[in-house]
Amino acid sequence: MTTAPASNLLARLGRFIAELPGAPMALVERVIGTSRMAYVFILPNILFFGLFVFLPIGIDIYYSFTGGTALFPSQRPGVGGLQYHYLADCKNFYDPSSCREDYFWRGMWTSLKFTLIQVSVMVLVSLATALVLNMKIRARGFFRAVYFFPVLLSPVVVALVWKWILQPQGLLNAAIVGMGGQPILFLADAGWAMFWAIFVSVWAHTGFYTLILLAGLQAIPRDIYEAADMDGTRPLRQLVRLTLPLLWPNLLVVLVLVTIRGVQTFDEVFALTGGGPGTATMMIVQYIYTTAFASQVPDYGLAAAASVVLGLLLLVLTLTQLWLTRRRGAT
């Protein structure tokens, strides 16, 4: 143990604070009995979960059936299924501009597009990195850390790091001009903005999934590969026939996790593009945020209805994940 005076003092301070509730808690224990003390210990957590998770789910559903602009539940008139009706009011579901709430549908389609591309890129990059890191390479810890560290960065920092590189006078444009090209306004072009939104979110999160896949790879027994080597199996065949099937459960988990997170994407993309240019990178969470908190007339009811739709979508995805993990446990 360290005997540094500073840490000693800190430990003593911590102990002192920890003893403070001792007397009242002992009194409570004497009144209700030791066996019921568990409820006292769990009470704060239940209060927090109740107040900030379970109660809000109820309010969310209630709000989605009310209208008006008032914030407090008692001042909101019930409107039945009108909010859902607004959301679903479309002449042609494939064309957002034919919808009453065109931004909702734009957000949905953009989320879908973003998620599909991002999931495939993310899984491929993470898998490639995990496979490389699982090879007999030097300084594996260092390289793993290199891929992992952006996971810890805040979305705003991630966005600003890249915005600085992508800006019209930025590093990337300097390179393009240096090679004789014309500078590109990356974030003012719909296609490029989407490209960079996906690129940046893969950059920021691939380390996390790499870690999960690497753990899976390292759990594969070495002797299987030795046996394959003895049989003279080529490396590519080993990858396709041995590694990928054995890694499949981990891959599935990663696939579903990336999908769940992809549907909820907001932070980095919002800080990077603000949803623009126009609505090119505005996704469903940003629609909810804007509708309820960032528009002239806040429409809590409509935002709540959109939240419920998103919640149901996520529920389906999460149940898929649970089902997949359960099945993995069974086999």
């Binding site: 789910i57 709000y63 909810i288």
Partner: peptide, 14 residues
């Protein structure tokens, strides 16, 4: 299973 993204409005109300 309940990320903050789907309960923004009600938590704000609470």
């Amino acid at each position: 299973m309940v990320p903050i993204t789907i309960i923004l409005v009600p938590v704000f109300v609470v």
